[in-house]
Design a protein around this nucleic acid. Structure first.
Lengths: 233, 233
DNA sequence: TGTATTTAATTTGTCGACAAGAAATATGCA
DNA sequence: TGCATATTTCTTGTCGACAAATTAAATACA
């Protein structure tokens, strides 16, 4: 009996949905469940050792965030990454980088910066260790912490969705993170954090914009390369 | 037997959740279910003539959009309107007005403008008839149609959420929409639509910003008045 | 009478089962 | 053999029931 099903009996009432939701969400974002993977309710209920009801509730929440697609009366599967409308994604991502960083410079409190700095150290360590997966997730966590310091839940929730989507995207290409580029991100983060601390909203916004555009152009390069590969097949 | 329960037998499989979701959503946004109202699952299942399972699924979706709050193992109720952090709301609303209108000027197609114009006529009619509820909902529909012409689903979905929240807010104060102000909105809409059609992104963005700030300052005036009333009690 | 502890009632979370719809398979017919 | 139709299998949507958690009521005790 594996760990998940062994929790069957000791599970607190009401905790089942959250467990299933968190695990599936991570598996989708880490591409352990790649886009298009079929989601079978009975299979999941066997795996997690619970009935289909809490499984379904977790699936409804995942569908609400666009992580899975549900065809009525038919199969449900992990949602595809939309490569055709990628520019919409980049537009939204850059704008949210800018606005959340700007607001962080305006509204942050000292304790916010502590959390941000801790994550920046984690990110630097991941870069040093060349651990691409850790880089991806700590980078998202860092920028989310900055967004939270900006104290606008509307922007923060959209940004979270975009960062998650990006986590999936970057996971596709994490091999190509290798040489000098990550270190540059570490330096850019330091500059952004300094601007936030100095409450220099204009500078923070500009740095965030440049940082975001760096990332976007990097992803676009990877996409281009991949598209060329596709064509050449 | 009322209309809703009479549909019990003729209901298509899978349609139940959507029906409950749509009806509850509208009732919440129209303040027929005011903030704080208790949501009882068995009561709803009796009202809609179906079991608790589809009701619960609809509630999970509503909770995902922040329209209801659920305390584990305890009651669930219509979420409060957060008057304390209203500036976050206004910041997000103004930015989404600006960016969606700008993108509409850039990416719209002829058929988009037809839909927008139809809604603008509806809005003008509502203003003429001094029908505040129709004004609120057609205004939201109009700006959502503009956002859809901009073709960025990330912005559109956040904007939808904000417009819904605003629908609830405005519904609180719809009495005070009376004299010359609404007509000004009609004119501003016309100018915005013209700028979009001319593909003048800068002008469209500026007009949308001014329009949004008009609306925000109007709401703020109403809030101020209300706050003063509260204090004087 | 007031407070603490038990008991009952209410409401949510979970379960197992059944039925409807769609896909896969099998059958009938030219 | 090729195609249309019927049957079976599989998955989802819905149901009614039960159990756990919480709240309200009732009882006991100082």
């Amino acid at each position: 009996m594996d760990h998940e099903t062994s929790l069957r009996n000791e599970r607190k009432r009401g905790s089942g949905v959250k467990v299933v939701y968190d695990i599936l969400r991570d598996e989708i974002l880490d591409l352990e469940l790649p886009p298009g993977s079929p989601i079978d309710e009975v299979q999941l209920s066997e795996r997690f050792g619970m009935s289909r009801t809490p499984i379904r509730e977790a699936l409804v929440r995942l569908a609400g965030e666009g992580l899975i697609d549900t065809l009525p009366n038919r199969s449900t599967m992990v949602s595809q990454i939309d490569f055709l409308n990628m520019h919409s994604y980049f537009d939204a991502l850059v704008l949210m980088y800018r606005v959340t960083t700007q607001l962080a410079a305006k509204y942050h409190r000292p304790e916010d910066l502590e959390a941000v700095r801790a994550l920046q150290i984690e990110f630097a360590n991941a870069v040093e260790a060349q651990d691409a997966l850790a880089m991806i997730s700590t980078n998202a966590a860092l920028h989310l912490a900055i967004a939270e310091a900006g104290r606008n839940p509307y922007f923060t929730s959209l940004f979270l969705r975009l960062l998650n989507e990006g986590r999936r995207l970057l996971r596709l290409y994490y091999q190509s993170y290798n040489d000098q580029l990550p270190r540059r991100f570490v330096e850019e983060h330091d500059e952004i954090i300094a601007a936030i601390e100095a409450r220099n909203t204009e500078l923070a916004e500009r740095l965030a914009r440049e940082h975001a555009e760096q990332i976007v152009s990097q992803i676009q390069k990877l996409l281009m390369r991949e598209e060329r590969l596709d064509v050449s097949l």
